[in-house]
Amino acid sequence: MNNVKTLNKWANAHTYLPIDLLRMALGVFLFMKGVYFFSNSQNLVDLLSPIEGLDRFGSLEMFAIHYIAPAHLIGGILIFCGLLTRWAIISQLPILISAIIINFMGQMHHQNLLLALICLTVCFFFLFYGSGKNSADYFFKMQV
């Protein structure tokens, strides 16, 4: 009977671990995408080619390089650590929604569409759920 109680306490204390691992995986994925977009900026511009007709001032490339890649880099780090998670996810939402829309406007890339949909779904989950128990937000909240 004692073993059951200790196992139950351990299970209750560690139920948040899979959700925190999912949050950390999302952060790593976004960080790696940011690194990829910084190292292959021409590829990022090519992904945005279906909306070139909407770019009247020619500022799309500058916007892509100066917003999308840093937002993924910084947002990925913040989401991984669980620091300001909701704010970091809010900065990711326009990028992910645009990625889905651009995929339908241009040539359909099923893998990119699937990755964007999964990432958007996970982002919406953490937008409402928060950063979790094993996060910097929770740590700082408990310090006050």
Rank of each mutant, 00 (worst) to 15 (best):
A88V: 06
D137N: 09
I19T: 14
I19M: 09
L114Y: 13
K9I: 15
A99W: 04
Y138R: 07
Y16A: 06
T121K: 02
G58N: 10
L21C: 11
M142N: 12
Q111F: 14
A136Y: 13
L47R: 08
T15S: 14
R23N: 00
I79H: 06
H66E: 13
L26Q: 03
N134T: 12
L30H: 08
D46L: 08
A136S: 11
L47E: 12
G132I: 02
S135D: 03
L22S: 11
L78Q: 01
E52T: 12
H14C: 12
F31H: 04
S131W: 03
K33A: 15
Y138P: 02
E52A: 12
R86G: 05
L117S: 13
L83K: 03
Y129G: 07
S59P: 05
P94H: 06
R56P: 11
L93Y: 07
G82P: 00
T121R: 02
A116T: 09
T6I: 13
C119N: 09
A64R: 01
I97L: 13
F57H: 11
I19K: 08
L22N: 00
S49K: 09
M108D: 11
A13C: 08
G34Q: 07
V144R: 09
Q92G: 10
G27P: 07
I65S: 09
P18Y: 05
I68S: 00
Y129T: 05
V35W: 00
T121N: 09
V4P: 01
W10F: 15
W87I: 14
L120M: 06
T85A: 06
I95S: 00
L17A: 12
P70Q: 01
A136M: 14
I100Q: 06
G106P: 09
I77N: 04
M142Y: 08
L17K: 07
R86C: 02
N112S: 13
V28T: 05
L117N: 02
S49H: 12
F139H: 12
L7F: 10
V122F: 03
G53I: 00
V4K: 11
G132C: 01
V144S: 11
R86A: 05
L83A: 12
S59D: 11
T6N: 08
L26H: 04
V35L: 11
I51A: 04
R56A: 15
I90K: 02
N3S: 12
M62H: 10
I95E: 05
G106R: 01
I101E: 08
H109K: 07
V144K: 10
G34E: 06
L113C: 02
M24T: 06
I19V: 15
Q107T: 15
C123S: 15
L93V: 15
C119F: 04
L21G: 04
N103F: 01
H72G: 00
E52W: 02
G82C: 00
D55E: 00
K5C: 11
I95H: 06
Y138I: 04
F38D: 12
I51D: 00
P70A: 02
A11M: 12
L48R: 01
F128K: 08
Q92A: 14
N3R: 09
Y67T: 15
